[in-house]
């Protein structure tokens, strides 16, 4: 045992064994179960559940809403977080306080965040009260009207940006801290103004952090659920909402599993894309 523990070849594997067992029991086994559920019936292998899913009238809206939300929310979050991170790192005093304030939404669950924005936007909510009090509107407006899909979409975008930009911010602030300040100083000495320094030096050097933030935020964006459920209910179907609906309302876990596989496939595709697109090519052997 003593020899086994001191062996440099065996020890690393022994050390990752507990974590591996944990992952196998609570991640890999359920994952295999979901795959089996999605692709099998009593007669064996089948794509029938995927057909059922695709034939449902809500599937296409759910797919396009989810992709649409991700494509709108993530770029806004990355841009906002870049601006905020640049501001935070430039602060000489009170940097930590500002950072904590910026990251408060991180401490709030997505369901609670949805409720906060619902309280703001509903017919008798804060926004209506303020606008009415200021005399801007004659009476309460229904901002979350189920007939106004675009309005619901915008409400969800705003709530998601408020809720989850901070995680991007935290990653980018950490990333900015890793860039030696000499690069910025060298660019300054050699004639680059603030904007050029940002786009020619800071942004490219921030690539590893941007990659992490993009992958993390995009995957989470495909799992958008609670905020949508609170603000739009069934009027803005999304993939995760449909998964929930098939699993618990319609009690068909086969189709729910098929939805889960679709979400996984999209997330995987985007992750691979970001890994490829933002890959560091400068360390490969010179031609």
């Amino acid at each position: 045992m003593q020899r086994l523990l001191s062996s440099q070849k065996v020890l690393p594997y022994l050390l990752i064994l507990p974590a591996s067992l944990f992952l196998a029991a609570f991640f890999f086994v359920p994952f295999v179960q979901v795959v089996l559920e999605a692709f099998t019936s009593d007669e064996g292998f089948t794509l029938a559940h995927f057909r059922t899913m695709a034939d449902d009238w809500k599937f296409m809206p759910a797919l396009s809403n989810t992709l649409g939300l991700a494509l709108v929310v993530v770029p806004i979050q990355i841009t906002l977080a870049l601006v905020m991170a640049s501001l935070v790192t430039r602060l000489r005093r009170g940097r930590d306080v500002v950072l904590y304030v910026f990251t408060i939404p991180l401490g709030i669950s997505d369901l609670a965040a949805g409720l906060i924005w619902f309280a703001l936007l509903e017919q008798n909510g804060f926004l209506n009260s303020i606008l009415y009090g200021l005399g801007v509107i004659p009476g309460p407006q229904n901002l979350l009207d189920y007939r106004n899909t675009a309005g619901l979409f915008v409400a969800v975008v705003v709530a998601e940006v408020w809720r989850a930009t901070a995680i991007v911010l935290v990653i980018l602030v950490a990333g900015l801290g890793l860039i030696p300040k000499e690069y910025d100083e060298a660019a300054e000495v050699f004639g680059a103004g603030p904007l050029k320094r940002f786009f020619l030096i800071t942004l490219p050097l921030l690539r590893p952090s941007l990659q992490t933030a993009l992958i993390l935020r995009t995957i989470l964006a495909f799992e958008v659920f609670a905020v949508v459920a609170v603000l739009a209910g069934n009027n803005l179907p999304v993939l995760m909402g449909e998964t929930y609906s098939w699993q618990f309302d319609l009690q068909d876990h086969k189709v729910a599993s098929a939805y889960a596989i679709v979400i996984l496939a999209i997330s995987l595709a985007f992750t691979v894309f970001f890994l490829w697109a933002l890959h560091d090519r400068t360390r490969e052997a010179a031609a």
Partner: peptide
């Protein structure tokens, strides 16, 4: 700094890692 007519060599060189040697030398 950029209006002082100076150039500088830094202790850690600060050669931009995401640019080729050509682009580094030609940066200014």
């Amino acid at each position: 700094p950029r209006r002082r007519g100076i150039a500088m060599v830094f202790q850690n060189y600060a050669v931009f890692p995401h640019m080729t040697v050509f682009d580094n030398i030609g940066f200014g």
